[in-house]
Amino acid sequence: MRQTTVRRVLLVIAVMAAAALLGGCSYVRPDAQHDMIEGFFGVLPVVLTGVFVGLIGTLVGAGGGFILVPILLIAYGFTPQHAIGTSTAVVFLNALSGTFSYMSQERIDYGLGVKFSVVAVPGVVIGAIVSQSFNMVVFSVIFALLLMAVTYTLVFVDEFYLVCSKSQTEPSTRVVYDSAGETHTYSPDMAVGFGGSFLVGILSGLLGVGGGLMHVPLMNFIGIPIHIAAATSHFIIVITSFFGVMIFAGLKTIDLDYTVFLGVGTILGAYYGAKLAMAVHPELIKRVIAVLLLIVSVKLILGII
């Protein structure tokens, strides 16, 4: 019954987001720097970009916003505001697709997801409002630093798993039974979780990255098993990015044509990324992506010098 209710709510959210996109987005706003997508040879590279973003995002274990935003800036000439808004919409589509998959695995902690979302949404609103004052120089520096931090994490941090002492000493308070028959018991440190979720929400609205790259290790840190953290993070991103879509659609900083074609590509990329992750050694994946992110961060810096 719970899953049926959640599915209905997610479908309502999807319909509302679609209505906002259709009603509030523009193909090219007058102050946008990029062109309309025209013809097959205009669509194809955008879809392939989405495939690449979905592939990389899945291999890292997070959404692809952290790589999509700089690509929109560098390759397609987006303004920071259009890159943030369009990335948020694509992240929403990707997270919605991933959430339905995780629902079938029964690894989402809906109670925690709703609580963390309630805390994160005000942060998304604050970040989205602040992002409208960015210029290319400031935004490029901030995003380059984020990519460098991710690069460092991929190369030098072997495991995200850090359990708070509170989670080790208190009795388990939450139990999740997944479809594989595995039982997950844990007692998360909610105070740290709420504070961290608010900050993740700010960064999500500020940079258009969704927040999965930060939320998963945060949830793992407070004592939530990594599989539950990844699944629940997708559920949270659906809710937080939905509000981001509402805000950015109202500001007309989401380009509908790019959102649709990138969204289709990211869903395909996520599918093949999951298969590739099973076939390739994870350390090789991490090193290749780290080099890629370092190159992108350097490119962002060079672009403003």
Rank of each mutant, 00 (worst) to 15 (best):
Ser87Trp: 05
Gly98Val: 01
Gln105Asp: 13
Gln81Asn: 14
Leu96Ile: 09
Tyr110Trp: 12
Val114Ile: 15
Val130Trp: 03
Gln105Ser: 13
Leu73Trp: 00
Lys115Trp: 06
Val125Met: 08
Ile126Leu: 13
Val130Pro: 01
Ala75Ser: 15
Phe78Val: 13
Gly127Val: 03
Ser133Cys: 02
Leu72Asp: 12
Leu68Ile: 11
Phe100Ser: 05
Tyr102Trp: 12
Leu146Glu: 03
Val114Arg: 10
Ser101Leu: 12
Thr86Val: 09
Arg107Asn: 12
Val121Gln: 00
Arg107Trp: 04
Phe116Gln: 10
Phe134Lys: 11
Gly127His: 01
Pro80Gly: 07
Leu68Arg: 06
Ala75Trp: 14
Pro122His: 04
Ala95Tyr: 14
Val124Met: 14
Thr86Cys: 01
Val90Cys: 06
Gly123Ser: 11
Ser133Trp: 02
Ala144Cys: 02
Val91Cys: 08
Phe66Gln: 00
Val141Arg: 04
Ser117Ile: 09
Val130Tyr: 03
Val91Pro: 11
Val121Cys: 01
Val137Ser: 00
Lys115Arg: 12
Met136Asp: 00
Ala75Tyr: 15
Tyr102Thr: 14
His82Thr: 10
Val69Arg: 06
Val138Cys: 06
Val114Pro: 13
Gly85Ala: 02
Leu146Tyr: 11
Phe134Leu: 05
Ala89Val: 06
Asn135His: 12
Gly111Trp: 00
Val114Ser: 09
Phe66Trp: 00
Leu145Lys: 12
Leu146Ala: 10
Val138Pro: 04
Val125Glu: 02
Gln105Thr: 13
Thr79Trp: 15
Thr79Gln: 15
Ser131Asp: 10
Ser133His: 10
Thr79His: 13
Arg107Ser: 14
Ala95Leu: 14
Ile142Asp: 06
Leu72Trp: 12
Gly127Pro: 05
Phe78Ala: 11
Ile108Trp: 02
Val118His: 03
Leu73Ser: 02
Pro122Tyr: 08
Gln81Gly: 07
Phe116Glu: 05
Ser97His: 11
Ala75Gln: 14
Ser131Trp: 11
Leu73His: 01
Phe92Trp: 04
Pro122Val: 07
Thr99Ala: 05
Asp109Phe: 07
Phe139Leu: 10
Phe116Ala: 15
Phe92Ile: 05
Ile126Gln: 05
Ala144Asp: 03
Thr88Gln: 11
Gln132Thr: 15
Gly111Thr: 04
Leu68Tyr: 08
Ile84Glu: 00
Thr79Leu: 14
Thr79Lys: 15
Thr86Tyr: 01
Phe92Asn: 08
His82Ile: 04
Ser131Val: 09
Phe134Trp: 09
Ala120His: 09
His82Ala: 06
Ala83Arg: 05
Leu146Cys: 08
Val69Gly: 08
Gln105Val: 07
Val125Ile: 10
Tyr110Met: 11
Pro80Tyr: 02
Val124Ser: 12
Phe139Glu: 09
Ser117Val: 01
Leu72Tyr: 13
Thr79Asp: 15
Val121Glu: 02
Val91Leu: 08
Asn94Arg: 04
Gly98Asp: 05
Asn135Leu: 04
Gly111His: 02
Gly77Cys: 05
Gly123Trp: 08
Ala95Phe: 14
Asp109Glu: 11
Leu96Val: 09
Gly113Ile: 03
Gly85Ser: 02
Met136His: 04
Ile126Ala: 13
Lys115Cys: 00
Val118Thr: 10
Val137Asn: 00
Gly123His: 07
Val91Phe: 05
Leu146Ile: 12
Ser117Met: 05
Ala89Lys: 15
Tyr76Lys: 09
Ser87Gly: 06
Ser131Leu: 04
Gly77Gln: 03
Ser87Phe: 11
Val125Tyr: 01
Met136Lys: 03
Leu73Phe: 00
Phe139Arg: 10
